[in-house]
Nucleic acid binder design. Structure first.
Length: 455
RNA sequence: GGUCCCUUCGUCUAUCGGUUAGGACACAUGGUUUUCAUCCAUGAAAGAGGGGUUCGAUUCCCCUAGGGACCGCCA
């Protein structure tokens, strides 16, 4: 059975690249009728925060990326990682290193200032005797050997082991390092396919060495090129578009972000829009692209617009209410009622949930404009007012005729009536058509708002 | 500096050696529209450069250039 995993470290909010990695893992496991596991890599006690663990899980839920079983916490498995380090040491695949951090820092610096490549020089590699000093455990990387990473995305990558240093497995405080923990846990969790960011390519080689020494079955690796910011640089927290939270708070729908992420670095012929079912059905690993891709905010927005227009309106309203609750304000039930009834009008201008909020604000956040109309306009508005007063509620279709007649009668342009009318009804210069505004507000409220301004 | 990876319209991408190099977003123009949008139509827009291999190269190989990742007792 195929088992994939997403293994974030809880040192920050869910990153957009992480979200894509999670999505790919999720989709592939579902496509193969396998399992998708979540492993929180919280072995860095300093930087790992509980609130980020929760945030990552919440974001995955929000995106509809559901993991199987319970979330797995790497910190709970530390003893097993230590056991393996000791086993490697006993089998002479690893050794104790007594070099201090100061010594290593110095060597690193001299190497850097001489512009030469730094690798741990193996000072302690051949030490025979034990010393009564703090030590780390390093893996003994066999020299002068070629090792191959069979990467499902990048092809076979052959590398000389001389360029891989004897990396640390166990720190001097006896805690395991990332490469040890990751390898041990991937083995323990029976991970069959490791799909992750490009930045782990070298780590894969290191982890493979551990797998080989332990005679474990090596998983298949797929290293996905990273996502770059719009200016081509590595995505950073300062880009304001780097975490799923950044998108959530401006009113991007989870379906839209998911669809966008799916098509970033992956494709299926000419297809752009994927339902959840389709994405599971069509997802495969061989269509993952080899080159890094840039984020395109306009594309995200346009996809979001598509989903706002095409999503089931009930679901759209659910998303909208949750959105306003989190990021705007709790709307009263009357306003929600009005918005729900008129969502087909209000959603038409929106690219984001925030747009829907702004577009509907004249319902719950109406601001009267002082001196909005001049005396000439008042005459037309008065005529308009008298006519709509005569309307039965739900007789909104006649509104167009009313304004048409007034325009003809006074020999004016529609603009002369429509512009001030829209402004006093909504407090906004851009809003739905006059007919729709009155329909949304109801005759009474419309009459009130006009009255206020012409008297 | 070392190791490794990548390179098709501005962006995401399609192309299993033979195509007028296709689609989507963005952009431009026109139409619809009682504001703004929407919507519809049309258009402009690409194989980094140089060598090979081949009857034929965007596709395969090499070199150059550009971009990226990694090089922690972080993950």
């Amino acid at each position: 059975m195929v088992i994939t995993r997403f293994a974030p470290s809880p040192t920050g909010e869910l990153h957009i690249g992480g979200a894509r990695t999670a999505l790919f893992n999720y989709l592939y496991s579902k496509n193969q009728n396998g399992k998708f596991l979540l492993r929180i890599e919280d072995t860095d006690k300093e930087r790992s925060k509980k609130i980020y663990e929760d945030q990552i899980i919440n974001s995955l839920n929000w995106l509809g990326i559901n993991f199987d079983d319970k979330a797995f916490y790497q910190s709970k498995n530390i003893q097993k990682h230590i056991d393996i380090a000791e086993k490697l040491y006993e089998n002479n695949f690893a050794y104790k290193c007594y070099c201090t951090q100061d010594e290593l820092d110095k060597k690193r610096e001299t190497a850097k200032s001489n512009n030469i490549n730094y690798l741990y020089d193996g000072t302690c590699r051949e030490l025979k005797e034990n010393r009564d000093l703090p030590y780390v455990i390093r893996l003994k990387v066999e020299k002068n050997k070629k090792i191959t990473l069979y990467d499902g995305v990048q092809g076979n990558i052959e590398i000389d082991t001389n360029t891989i240093e004897d990396f640390i497995l166990l720190r001097s405080d006896n805690t395991p390092t990332y490469n040890l923990s990751a390898a041990v846990d991937d083995n323990l969790m029976n991970i069959t396919h490791v799909i992750r960011g490009d930045d782990h390519k070298i780590n894969a080689l290191k982890q493979i060495l551990i797998f080989q020494y332990m005679k474990w079955k090596i998983p298949k690796y797929f290293h996905v090129p990273l996502i770059h910011s719009e200016n081509g640089k590595k995505l950073s927290k300062r880009d304001n578009a780097s975490t799923t939270e950044d998108y959530k708070k401006i009113g991007i729908l989870p379906v839209a972000l998911r669809n966008y992420l799916l098509r970033l670095g992956w494709s299926y012929k000419d297809k752009e829009i994927f339902s959840d079912e389709e994405s599971i059905k069509y997802f495969n690993l061989k269509n993952i692209g080899k080159s890094p891709s840039k984020l395109d905010f306009e594309r995200i927005k346009s996809l979001n617009e598509f989903y706002i227009k095409n999503l089931d309106e009930k679901i759209l309203i659910e998303n909208f209410i949750l959105y306003t609750k989190f990021y705007k304000k709790n709307l009263d039930s009357n306003s929600i009622d009005i918005i729900t009834k008129n969502i087909n009008i209000l959603k038409n201008k929106a690219k984001t949930l925030e747009d829907i909020y702004v577009n509907s604000s004249f319902i719950f956040d109406y601001q009267q404009i002082k001196n909005a109309v001049n005396s000439k306009n008042k005459t037309y508005l008065n005529q308009f007012l008298e006519e709509i007063k005569k309307l039965n509620s739900y007789d909104y279709e006649k509104i167009s005729n009313i304004s048409e007649n007034i325009v003809k009668k006074n020999n004016i342009k529609f603009k002369d009536l429509g512009q001030p009318l829209r402004l006093i009804l909504t407090g906004l210069t851009q809003a739905p058509s006059i007919k729709d505004i009155i329909k949304i507000l109801g005759i009474n409220e419309a009459v009130n708002r006009i009255n206020y301004h012409i008297n």
